[in-house]
Every structure is written in C-alpha cells, then in structure tokens.
Simulated assay, not measured.
Amino acid sequence: MDRLLSSPAIVQGLRKVEDRIRRLSGSSALPGINAGARHVVDAGGKRLRPALTLAAALALGKSPDRRVITAAACVELIHAGSLVHDDLMDRATERRGARTLNAELGDGKALVIGDFMLARAGLAAITAVSRPVAEVLAATVVELAEGQYLETSDLFNPARTRENALRSITGKTAALFRAGCLVAAICAHASDEDKARLATYGERFGVIFQVLDDLLDLTADGPQLGKPAGHDLRQGVYSLPVLMSGVDLGDLLGRDMGEAEVAEALRRLRASRMADDTLAYCHGLAAEALAALPVIHDPELAGLLYGLPTAYIQHVTDLTRLTTTS
C-alpha cells in the first residue's frame, strides 16, 4: 500500500484530487455545511480509494485528466460521507484522533452534512464526469446502505452466518473499491472485459481490506488501532474472522458484555487459529484479484496493482505477529 501511495504519478494525481475534494466539500450555499464537510475531509486518511482509481486509469493508459480526477474525488467524498453516517450509528466521538462530526455538531447536523457529501458527489459525477460514472456511483451508494443495513440487522446475533457477513462486507466496503476501479475503466473507454476485470479486482481487494481491518480489531492493541481492541465485539458486530475462528464465545457475547468478557473473548480468539485462517482466506482472495487484472503494459503500474493485495496482507500479518508475540 505504501508503494502505491508513494508512486510519483499517484502522488501528483492525488494533489489534484485533494484540491477537487476541497472544492466539492466547500460548495454549499450554507457556510455551516461547508465547515462541517471540511472538518471531515481534513481529518486525514490515506486516500487509498482515489489512489486506486488513479492507478487503474493509468494502468489502462489514461492520463489523470479532469474527468478522472473528479471521479476519484467523488469516490473519496462518498467514502467520507459514509463515515459520517457510520459514526452516527456507532455514537462514536473520535475518529483518527479528531472529534467526530456528531460529537462536534450534534446528530442532526452531522446527518445532513453526511447526506450533502453523498449528494454532492453524485451531482459532480453527472455534471463533470459522465452519466455512466454517475450511475455506477449512485448504485454504489445503494450498496453501501444495504451492506450497512445487513450488518445492523445482525447485531448481537450469535447465529450470524459467514455468508451474511460476507454480503455485508461486499456492500458496505468492497463496493466502493470496485466502483473506484470501474469508473476509472469507464473514463479510459476500456473494453467491457477490462471493465469487468478491474471491477472484480477492486471488489476482491475491498473484501481483503475490510476482513483484515476486522482482524486487527481483534489482534492489535489500542495504540495501533487508535481505539480499544475488541470494539466490534462491544458493538455486537460478530465479524468474519470471529465466525471463521470456530471459537465458542456463547458464554461471553451479548449486549451487557463488559471489559472482563471482552478481554476473555480476545484471549480465546488470539489463542485459536483465527489469525492464520483469516490470513489464508485473504491470500485466496488476493489470488483471485490478481487473476482478474487485465493486461497492463506499463511495468510500474503493473507492479503497483499486482503488489497491492499481498503487500497489504503482509502489513497486517506483521502487525498481528507483533501483537501475538509481545
């Protein structure tokens, strides 16, 4: 991931994307909405989704022109707006070391600012990119909502299935990675086959990204996460790594789960094969992602896209081993 984000071509493109994000997030007629939206986009983040959009376009021989830059900015704006809604649902007060919008402004204002960001991305896509790109992004927002709804429906459900967890992951996270790759292919006027291949690549990487994020919630410590370990368990989200572990947590899980129960659940999970099995599952997804990639003639771009899934898995592997051996 660091290699992708440090590539000179990607860095140069991301500077333009950042400027476009700021313009879009500050385009309301109401100063309060602009201030709130900028609070969210200024909170940081690696900008991985727009970086992947830029890399996909470059891999297809498309220079990051105004349409590609705007498409990438729309992808990130949708991500940022969805985070506002996530924080509302979780009643979170902090993200990336900064106070959340709902903590700063209250739930009502945070809700409409999140809505504004999603809608502004759609408007920019239809007016400054193309109708096909706008259609992809609109359909993706639908998937984000459906994926989050599926997760909410399964809160505190010890009978949650792997299939349901995967459906939720695909909707709430992987769909936007898929969309980033697909809109890049649309801007590059790629063939239908190459569009489908890049979409599959983006979706598989998105699943890897979310599954490994869920794994870190169970294996990393508080300082590494920026939040207490076991956050998902406290919230009643029984993630795919938990479901794959085969560990019986029935005597611990529930709405009244205290810190002692969380600590014991983490101990059991970390003593199991959960981490190894989850990483193996992600390596399988990475193989599928790489097999889906179209022919990329630029060696640097080929290296970036082929290396991204396995590099991210290795990064999480190292963090997991550091925690379990300390």
Rank of each mutant, 00 (worst) to 15 (best):
R3N: 08
R3E: 11
S7W: 06
I10S: 03
R15C: 10
D19M: 12
G26L: 09
S28F: 08
P31W: 02
G36P: 04
A37C: 09
V40S: 12
A43H: 06
A55Y: 00
A55W: 01
A55P: 06
A59Q: 10
T70N: 09
T70V: 15
I78P: 00
H79E: 06
V84S: 04
D86R: 03
D90R: 07
D90I: 05
R91H: 14
T93V: 04
R96K: 13
R96S: 11
A103C: 03
A103W: 04
A110E: 02
L111H: 08
A125R: 11
A128Y: 10
S130C: 04
R131T: 00
V133P: 03
A134F: 11
A134M: 05
V141Q: 09
V142T: 09
T152Q: 14
S153A: 15
D154I: 00
L155M: 09
E163G: 03
N164L: 10
G171M: 08
T173C: 07
R178N: 05
V183T: 02
D192A: 14
E193V: 05
E203F: 04
F205Q: 02
F209D: 10
Q210C: 01
D214S: 10
L218M: 14
G222K: 04
G222I: 00
P223M: 09
Q224P: 01
K227Q: 01
R234N: 02
Y238P: 02
G246A: 06
D251V: 07
D251Y: 08
L252P: 00
G254F: 07
G254L: 03
G258Q: 09
G258I: 02
E264S: 09
H283L: 07
G284R: 13
G284C: 07
E288H: 12
A289G: 00
L290E: 14
P294G: 12
H297L: 14
P299H: 11
P299Y: 10
L304M: 09
L305E: 05
G307K: 09
Q314H: 15
D318V: 13
S326H: 15
